[in-house]
Computed example of a mutant assay.
Amino acid sequence: MASPSPQQLEKHIRRSALDTANVLFQLHAKQRMRQRHVTPAMVYEALQKGKLTATPEPDPRYQGLRCRMQRFVAGVDLAVVVYVDMPKPDLVVITVFSVEGA
């Protein structure tokens, strides 16, 4: 089976994030959220309405692809990095950061 296109991945992430139960946070992501004053609601909005801004890449430690969704939320240009294993709806949040600070 061919790899999904960036457009397919973006659509899948947006649709999956509509049910927030599909969004799982790694400990590292929770720590960065606290440190950077990012709320879960900000992450959900970035995933539900954001744009895929980097080329999805495989990670040998996990199945699926590492994807970065970005959106201007609550005064912050927020990037949320998630693992996606299509067609599964689960999205694992790896980290969050402000693009200005990148």
Rank of each mutant, 00 (worst) to 15 (best):
Ile94Tyr: 03
Arg36Gln: 01
Arg32Trp: 03
Gly101Cys: 12
Ser3Gln: 07
Ala41Val: 08
Leu52Val: 00
Ala74His: 09
Met86Leu: 15
Met42Asn: 02
Asp59Met: 08
Gln63Lys: 12
Asp77Ser: 09
Leu91Lys: 01
Pro40Asp: 13
Leu9Thr: 05
Ala74Met: 07
Val93Trp: 01
Pro6Lys: 00
Lys51Arg: 15
Ala54His: 12
Glu45Thr: 09
Gly75Glu: 11
Cys67Val: 07
Val76Leu: 07
Leu52Trp: 00
Gln70Asn: 14
Pro60Val: 15
Leu9Arg: 04
Glu57Leu: 11
Phe72Thr: 14
Val92Asp: 03
Ser5Lys: 07
Met42Ala: 05
Leu78Met: 06
Val99Gly: 00
Met69Arg: 06
Val84Tyr: 04
Ala21Ser: 14
Ala79Val: 14
Ala46His: 05
Asp90Met: 08
Phe25Thr: 11
Ala29Trp: 00
Arg14Tyr: 00
Pro6Ala: 02
Leu9Ala: 06
Val99Asp: 04
Leu27Gln: 13
Val93Tyr: 00
Glu57Gly: 11
Leu52Gln: 02
Gln48Leu: 06
Pro89Met: 01
Pro56Val: 05
Gln63Trp: 06
Gln31Met: 09
Asp85Ala: 13
Glu45Ser: 08
Gln63His: 10
Phe72His: 14
Gln70Lys: 09
Val99Tyr: 04
Pro89Ala: 03
Val38Arg: 01
Ser16Trp: 03
Leu65Met: 14
Ala74Asp: 15
Arg32Tyr: 04
Gln70Ser: 14
Asp85Lys: 09
Arg14Gln: 11
Leu78Trp: 01
Phe97Cys: 12
Val73Gln: 03
Leu47His: 04
Glu45Pro: 03
Asp77Gly: 05
Pro56His: 02
Glu10Leu: 04
His28Asp: 06
Gly64Asn: 08
Glu57Val: 15
Arg34Asn: 12
His12Gln: 11
Ala17Leu: 03
Val38Ala: 04
Gly64Phe: 08
His37Ala: 12
Val96Ile: 12
Gly75Arg: 10
Pro6Gln: 04
Pro89His: 03
Leu18His: 14
Asp59Gln: 08
Pro56Lys: 00
Ser3Leu: 08
Arg71Val: 08
Thr53Phe: 10
Ala41Arg: 12
His37Trp: 09
Leu47Ala: 05
Val73Tyr: 01
Arg61Cys: 10
Gln26Cys: 14
His12Phe: 05
Ser3Tyr: 03
Ala29Glu: 00
Met69Gly: 09
Gln63Leu: 10
Arg71Ser: 11
Gln8Leu: 06
His28Leu: 06
Arg34Trp: 09
Gln26Lys: 13
Gln8Ile: 02
Gln7Ile: 08
Val92His: 04
Leu65Lys: 13
Pro4Cys: 02
Gln48Asp: 07
Leu52Pro: 00
Gln31Phe: 07
Thr39Ala: 11
His28Gly: 03
Arg15Ala: 11
Leu52Asn: 01
Pro58Asp: 04
Arg32Pro: 05
